[in-house]
Write a protein that binds this DNA or RNA. Sequence first.
DNA 1: TCAACGTGAAACCAAAAGGTGTTATATTAA
DNA 2: TTAATATAACACCTTTTGGTTTCACGTTGA
Lengths: 110, 110
Amino acid sequence: MSQAPQKHDVFQAIADPTRREVLRLLSQKEMPISKITAYFPISRTAIAKHLHVLSDAKLVSGRKEGRERIYQLHPEPLEEVQQWISFYEKFWSNKLSILKHIVENDDKNH
Amino acid sequence: MSQAPQKHDVFQAIADPTRREVLRLLSQKEMPISKITAYFPISRTAIAKHLHVLSDAKLVSGRKEGRERIYQLHPEPLEEVQQWISFYEKFWSNKLSILKHIVENDDKNH
DNA sequence: TCAACGTGAAACCAAAAGGTGTTATATTAA
DNA sequence: TTAATATAACACCTTTTGGTTTCACGTTGA
C-alpha cells in the first residue's frame, strides 16, 4: 500500500470507511491489531495496511508491548479537517454561527 | 474515473486536493468548466472528471446556459463530515466545548 | 527448549483513480 | 450556412488502492 513517509494526508486517511471505523474503535480503547481485525470481515494484513495509512497521517501510533503492538488514537490531525470545513459552515449554519465564532475567537486570546 | 450513480461519497470527494480547491473556487462564484480549468495545470477533461466525482457526492451541480454549463456549489453534504468530526472535537477542544454543545443543542429545539 | 502466538513484511492481483489526447455534438457569431 | 466555441464522451495509459496468501521473526508459556 505504501511505506514512504508523509505520503498520506489526513483527508485521504479518513476517505475510507474501514479506516474511519478503526478510528472510532481506537477512540474508545487502544488495542492490538488482532483485536481490531476481529471487528472486520477482512484480513489482518489488510487492517495492517489501513493502520499504516493512518500512521502516515499521524492519526495513530503503535507501541510494542511483549509480543503485541498496541495501537493508539491521535486525533489531533483531524483539527485540520475541522478547520477546513469551518470555512463552509457559514453556508448552512444558522443564527448561532456568530456566537460560536465569537466564543472560539475569544478563547484564542487566553 | 467513474459514471455509476451514487458511487462517490463526500469523504472520498474531499480527499483530493484538486477537488477541494475546486470547491473553494465555486464557493466564491459559480463558473463554467473552462474558467475552473484556468486555475489548474491539468486538462479540462481531468477537471471534468473531478466535477463528476463532486457531482456524485452532490457537492456541485451544473446548469446549461447557452453553450456553457455553469457549475455551482452545494455545500450541504459537507455537514455529514462536520457531524463526523464533531465526535472527535472532545479530544482536543477546550473548556468552551461544553458551551458550544449547549448552544448547538438548544438550536435544535427551535 | 520449543511449539504456539502475534505480528510485520513481501509478492502478487484486480480494480479504481487520475491523468492524457481525440472525437462528437450543440450553440452562437459572422 | 458555416466557422469557432464550449463542452461532453470515449479510448487509453500509468500509478495507487485495497485486498489476498505466504513467509519470517521475536516473544512467551509449558
